[in-house]
């Protein structure tokens, strides 16, 4: 069964073999001791779209990623990839089927150069035994580094580069395996404004190639600009889903982010000495024009 799936894993364009979404997270629950980190989370990710997963710190976003990529076993619930239940599939096999992820806490190979980091990924993708053969992927690697914008760092050791660069390196490493689904955990933190803009364009390009992108991100400008769908996670539960415009207006989201929403009874939150919050000073800025279109 798994070997069949692996046969198809060669190209992400072969994923049209089933009708449902590429990734389905179905009523996933994760408990640590008595604390529920993820509570009945349900969401999907589709090819060609960028899906945002947002929420306050500690809402359970990274735990969701760990469940999807197989690093964390869910207490209950199912993860389906290409229509198949992968809840008990080992990490590496999920990757072979077309999942790639980056980490919030960086996991670059610190002893290796940036280029070798990506080479390792390419080697693993080709198969360990084929790794004996001399690699003919030199040019591809450099093209990949160029694409994510870190070619200048190619010969630096990965534990000596800035955080933002290391995040892009993790993305490049993922892309070396040509994944159908990209799980990006806070990819833009550590990037400056111009770099973030370029990164947004890159995300749209990657989606346009038919990949599904699921992204945990704190930079609301970026999220609003590039995401097609946004799911808001709070307290382990999905409290809202929809396109950026919908999310921006959702009172539950405001409440999750601000601690209260405009619609709440003002008496319960006596803020007499603070100016009233108008829509203009809203936390989540409007989508920037141009990016992603």
């Amino acid at each position: 069964m798994s070997s069949l799936a692996e046969t198809f894993a060669g190209s992400h364009r072969a994923s049209g073999s089933h009708d449902g979404p590429l990734l389905e997270v179905d009523h996933v629950v994760v408990q640590f001791g008595g604390v529920t980190a993820v509570n009945e989370a349900c969401f999907t990710a589709d090819p060609g779209t960028v899906t945002g997963l947002i929420g306050p710190n500690g809402a359970g976003k990274t735990t969701c990623f760990n469940v999807i990529s197989g690093l964390q076993k869910p207490t209950r619930g199912t993860v389906r990839f290409q229509g198949k239940d992968v809840s008990s599939t080992p990490v590496h096999r999920r990757s072979k089927r077309g999942m790639g992820r980056t980490f919030q806490r960086l996991e670059a190979f610190g002893s290796l150069s940036v280029r070798d980091n990506v080479k390792v990924a390419a080697d693993i993708h080709r198969g360990v035994l084929k790794g004996f053969l001399p690699g003919g992927h030199g040019k591809n690697i450099d093209a990949l580094l160029e694409r994510v914008g870190i070619a200048a760092y190619a010969d630096e050791r990965a534990d000596s580069i800035p955080t933002g660069t290391a995040r892009l390196l993790e993305l490049a490493r993922c892309l070396a395996g040509d994944p159908k689904l990209l799980l990006l955990d806070e990819p833009s933190s550590g990037l400056d404004e111009t770099e973030t803009d370029a990164f947004g364009d890159l995300l749209r390009d990657l989606a346009a190639e038919g990949r599904a992108i699921l992204m945990v991100e704190h930079d609301m400008d970026l999220v609003m600009a590039v995401c097609d769908v946004i799911h808001v996670l709070d307290f382990g539960s999905i409290i809202a889903s929809g396109d950026p415009a919908t999310i921006r207006r959702d009172p539950a989201v405001q409440k999750a982010y601000l601690g209260y929403s405009d619609e709440d009874d003002a008496d319960a939150h006596t803020v007499t000495d603070l100016p009233a919050v108008s829509d203009d000073t809203m936390v989540i800025p409007a989508a920037r024009e141009g990016v992603g279109s």
Partner: peptide
């Protein structure tokens, strides 16, 4: 430091 992290608004209050 981030007293409210991962908590429901009511509890944060």
């Amino acid at each position: 430091d981030e007293l409210s992290m991962g908590l429901a608004p009511l509890i944060v209050d």
